[in-house]
Structure formats: C-alpha cells, structure tokens
Nucleic acid binder design. Structure first.
Lengths: 215, 215, 215, 215
DNA sequence: CATGAATGAGACTTCATTCAT
DNA sequence: TATGAATGAAGTCTCATTCAT
C-alpha cells in the first residue's frame, strides 16, 4: 500500500529485462516448444516460480521477448527510409546492411526461425509475430521500392512481389545463421557477406532503369 | 529355410513405404520433435510396435523419409543440367520452375523447414540432410552458373555466393508455403508465382552481360 | 489389426475395474482436487501412464467412478418401488434401509460428499453427478410418496418438499459417515441406526392419515 | 515505552476484522484447501505478508473465522431455549426458523460445508469446529427435546437420535444452499422454505403425544 | 512378423510461506 | 508494522520406447 522500498522497486524493474535476456538465446537455440521454463529461470539466476511471477505463461514470455527486441528496430528503420535523401539504390544498400548488422547478426533474427518453425503448432504466437514484425518490415521494403520507381530509378516492377524477392535472401541468411551455421554441420557453409554483396549487386543491376538504347 | 508366404513377403515390402508416406506429411506439419510415433503408425494403419520394427527410432524414420523422397529429385535435376543445350538463362528458368513444381509444391519441400527448425536440437539429423540434399543441390546451381559464365552469358560473379543468392528466394518460398501459408495467420500472404517471376526477372537482368557501351 | 491375444485382452478389460476400485476410496477420502492421479495408479498397482491410458483426465476418471458405482443401485431401487405390493409405510422402510445398506454403508455414498464439497470448483462434475444420481433418486422418492397419497395411506403433503425432507436425514447420515465419523474427531459421534429409526418413526407417524376423530 | 500512535493502534485492531471478513466468503465458496492466501489478502486490501503477520498459517486464519462468526450465535440460541415459556412445539419452530434466518441464510452456514468437505484432510480443523460449533448446537437441541418430554408434550423418544433427526434437514438445507444451489447446476433445485415447512410439520405431528384412544 | 499395454522421465504451472527491506 | 518478491515442492498430463504375448 505504501510505495515499495527503492531497492525492491529496482529489483522488480530489472527482473523482466533479465528474464527476457535469458529467454532470447534459449528460444533461438531450442525453439519455443523445446525451451524449458526452468532453464530460462536458471539462466536468469532466479527460480522457476519467479519467472511465472512476471510472465504468466511461456507464451506470454515469448511474446514479451518478441516485442521487447523488435520494437526499436522497426522504428529506426522506418525513420531511415523516411529521412533518406540520396539515391534509392543507396537507401536499399543501407536498409540491407542495417538489417544485417542489427537484426541478422544479433540474436533477434533467430526469432524468425523459431516462429517459422512452429507456426503450425502455435498459430497464436505466429499471428502475434506477423502483426508485430512481418507486416511492418514488409511495409518498409515496399515503400522503399515505391520510392525508387517514383523517382524514376527503378523499373516499374510488381512492388509487393519485388519486396519479397528483395527480402528473401536476407531472411534466408538470417535463418541460416541461426540454424545450420550455428551447428557443427558440415556442408552448408556460406559467406553471408559475399551472398549479401551478390544479392545487392544483382538487385541494383536488375532493378535499375537502363540507359536509352541499351537492352 | 522355405521362402516366406507370398502375402507375407509383399506385406513386408509394402510396410516401409506406407510408413514413410504416413510420416512425411506429419513431419512437415508438426516438425520432428512434435510428431508422435503413434500418430505415424495410426496414419499408416499399423501399430506402434510395427513402426519400431522397421525403424528403430524416430530419428531413423526421419532419415528414411528424407532419403526416400529426395533421391530421385536430385538425380533428375542433375541430368537436366548435364543435358542442357539452350541458353543458360533458359536453363536457370527451367531449374527454378522445375524445383518449384516438383519440390516446393509437394510435401517434400516441407522437410527443409523441419530440418532448419530443429538442427540445433538434432544435429545428426541435420548433417544427414545436408549430405543428402543440400550439397547436391548446391553443386547443381553452381555448375549452372559456371556454365553461364563460361559461355559468356553471365557476368563474372562469385559462383558460390551467387548460387546462394539464386536459391535463397526459392528456399524462402518453400519455407513460407509450409509455415505461414499453411496456417490461418493473417498478414504474411504472398503470391509465390509473382515472387518467383520477379526473382527470375531480376536474376536474368542482373546477371547477364551488358552490350558494349551500356552501363 | 488382429484380435488381441486372450491374456492381453483380459488384462485390458480388467484394468478399468482395478482403477475404478482404487479411485473410489481415494476420492471419498480426500476429495476430488486432493486426490493425486499417481496415488490412484499406485493403489491400482499400475504406473501413472497407465491410468491416463484408460482415462484421459482426472475428471473423466471421476465420472467413470460415479457412473460405474451408481448405475446398478438406482436401477434396483426403481424396480423395488415398481414391484412393491405391501403398504407404502413398508415400502418406505425398505427404501430407507436399502439405501442405508447399499449406499451409505459402502464407499459409494461418499461420492455425495465429494461432489457437494467441490461443486463450486468443478461445476461440470457436479452437473454430471446431479444428472446421473440426484435426479433419479429424487424421482424415486417422489413416486413412493405419491403412491402413499394415492392409496390413501399418507396425508396430502407437498410431494417434492416431503421427498427432500425424507431424504435429508439419509444424506446427512451418509455425509457424516464419510466425514466426521471417518476421522478421529471427538464430539460428533452418532448412532446411525438410532437416527435412522427415529427418522423412520417420525416419518411414519408424521405422514400417515389419522383415524377419524383423532387430532 | 510510549503508547503507539492512535491511527496505528486503530489499524492494528481493525486488520483482523478485515481479514476475517474477507476470508469467510472465500472459504465458503472455494473450500479450505482451494482458497488462496493471496486472494484473502487482496480482498482485505492488504498484502500477503500482513495476513501472515496476524495469522501464522491458513489453518489459524480458518479457526479465527470459525470462532469469530459462531460465538455469538450459539449464545443467543442458548438463551432463547433457557428463556422459553411457551409450548415446546413453538420453541422448536422458533429454533428452526432462528437457525434458518441467522445461520443458514448467512455465509456462516457455509463453514459447515467446508469442514465436512475437508475433515479427512485437516482433522485438526474439524476437531476445532466440532468443539466450538457442533457440540453446543447438539446440546441445544437435546435440551429442547428433553423439555418437550418432561413437560409431557413429546413422546418418550431417544433424545440424542431425535436431536440428530431434527437437525439433519436443517444441515442438509444449509449444505445445499452453499453447494448445489450456489452453482449453475440444473436438476437439484429445491424450495428451502417448503422443505423446512414439511419438516416442521412432520416433526410436530410425529413427536407429539396422541390423544387417548388414538393410534 | 505384429501388437498395443505399460512405463517413467520430464514439462508446465500453482501456491503456502518466508524474509529482506 | 507492512510489504511483495522469491522460493521450490507438488500436481497434472505427454510420449518415446519396450516387451510379453
């Protein structure tokens, strides 16, 4: 009924962060179903009960992990697109490498694998992820491509399909990083930077408007 | 020492096929860990015990499913590349649409999702899959790109990275089909044909050698 | 697919009985919520898993216990009423002592306590019990009282209310037997036979039609 | 050594009352085991810790609830019997309707259900309840019946057994009110007033001494 | 060959009680 | 006095695998 003691309050404010930080790599590594609540708690240095004090179920914990880790990213990227002043080819480069550095490189990107892997077993989780992550990301890329077309830099392509074609290799790399690349599996090695460069190269060449008289 | 009764023998030979046919869609739908052995047996019309008679563990069953369904596909595609006589752009189109029709459309493509989703929990399974499926497919695309370069049709790109950039959207579509698209999840709808067309278009434009004097 | 081996079949047929027999006294002693599934299994001499093989949840087990133990009783009593030829006072006596001997004395009567105790936490269970047990029993007593009135043996009382007034002490004794009497609690001892006799005495005296000129 | 601040003192004195008032309806609704300490505290507007400050365990809280709510009732009824001047039939009527109005109608009556339901899991609680509630009530009814016999109004019945037979329907109604009647369960509806009337009617008729020459 | 009853480790979640603040 | 974060034992239910028949 009184305001909680400062120390207590601080602890209470810090716990969710600790739990989310512990949960993210575990979810990414094992997936949703195979991640045990107790393990998350242990990694966070608390007991099983404490976890349930902050998140009433494993599903809620997962949603919190998604929201907590994605929110900022989408916002930043949106501003980057809105504030872009240079050529759209440059913007696209920036978007791709920004994604690569901030999303795919970190653990956050691994969440895509988790959701993709378990949509059919946990549709509600997937819907949440699509609403919070997929849709905003899609809008971002579409607006970027539309910008290229409007400014006469890109050919008049199918915006939605092209957005997917642009994102696909990014997602592919992201998935790869958190699946095959994270394991001692021989034979599916790839150099993400090189693939990224190849992809960007193909895109720029493949999308730009040709000079007159050129095929 | 007498030969088994004909019916018996036929049954013995037929069982594995039934089991594999029952297992494939279940693995694709639920993933490896979440697929219950009992369900596979029931779908195959046999008892749980019988399943374990033919496949000593769920892992073995999964490997058999992979091998049984992939073998032919890789072979066919290899021959198509070897026997190609037209332009490499046409060959690439053929490879992409062949893949789409035979792999991504059928249940087989779903296996990629399963493996990707559970590499980190079942590395041995993944290794098997990479050996049997990923490596051969990679070699195929690489040899196709190399052909394009050698014949002066494609620019001198990084073969391996480009192969991945070429395959990435295919894999992306394949994963999508068996995850988000297979569920009543709103907001991640896409038209695979259109994405495929956009991708092929970008590739052809992005890889081909330009006429002299053109940027 | 073949008919199961005789031994196996017999075992499968016997299990439910064993489980129900193990469950009844435990439910009666501890109540529904406090009875642990594992304890039921142990008492039945099987493992936890086996219990869930036959009854998919504790609720289902409870329902099976109710149905299995009550069915016959209601039937018998119904026939007793239908076949009665003597006076209704005698029939009532028979009904009361039949109930006492077969229901209240055995463990079955304890189920009433369990349901009554946990209606508000498990309404579905209670509804089931009311449908299977309470309603049939009510009908029985009502038809008995109606018989007494129609044959001019009983005063013209409110049939439904009187049925409850007749049953009430029976239920009371039944509850008592499985609660206070089953515990080392001092101070609520009572002699059921004596209470039963007092009750029957009061009933017979209280319900019968008086001779003319008598108050 | 100084006297506590007036507000403080008042609070200290008021807390137990708040807690008991919050606990009673919860115990009655859910039973002893299923009532959560936290819920009681919340309803009382205090923290979990405070509850344990006043009552060292849930059992102690329950005992306090029993004692706090019953004490007065028994006293009143005892005086009513001692001070009775009219016929014993009237006294009995008064006792029954007094009980009905003050005990069964209020939440207090629900405690009987709780104890009855959980005697076997918490014998100590039950012993406490019997000492504080059951025994006094019994004595009350016995002395009332004895009065009827001594004054030549009642037949010479077994006092103890008859007392139980008299109380049984009351207890039955009280239990019913707090179990089946408090739930959306169809099929065990009853009109307490009518049952009460039927019971009183049967009792008066069944206990009174007959005029000479009457059966 | 085939069966399917049986097992038991293990996962999620709840809650009485404690104790540092 | 009062708080409420933290604990951890306990309970329900699942499922891969075995083995007697």
């Amino acid at each position: 009924m009184d305001t909680p003691h400062p120390t207590r309050r601080r602890r209470k404010e810090v716990r969710p962060q600790q739990l989310l930080d512990a949960a993210l790599p575990l979810f990414v590594e094992k997936g949703f179903a195979a991640t045990r609540a107790e393990e998350v708690a242990r990694q966070a240095g608390v007991s099983k009960g404490t976890l349930y004090l902050y998140y009433p179920s494993k599903e809620d914990l997962f949603k919190a992990v998604v929201r907590h880790n994605i929110a900022a990213l989408i916002g930043e990227a949106g501003q980057a697109v809105a504030a872009a002043s240079g050529s759209t080819a440059e913007l696209m480069q920036a978007l791709l490498s920004g994604w690569w550095e901030r999303v795919a490189q970190s653990q956050v990107g691994g969440l895509h694998k988790v959701v993709l892997a378990e949509v059919r077993n946990f549709p509600e989780l997937a819907q949440f992820y699509v609403d919070e992550v997929v849709r905003p990301a899609r809008r971002l890329f579409e607006s970027m491509i539309r910008r290229g077309i409007e400014r006469g830099e890109f050919r008049r392509v199918d915006v939605s399909a092209t957005a997917h074609a642009v994102m696909a290799p990014m997602i592919f790399l992201m998935l790869h990083k958190h699946s095959f690349a994270a394991c001692p599996v021989q034979g599916f090695e790839l150099d993400p930077q090189a693939v990224l460069a190849a992809h960007a190269d193909i895109l720029v060449e493949g999308l730009r408007v040709r000079a007159k008289g050129c095929p």
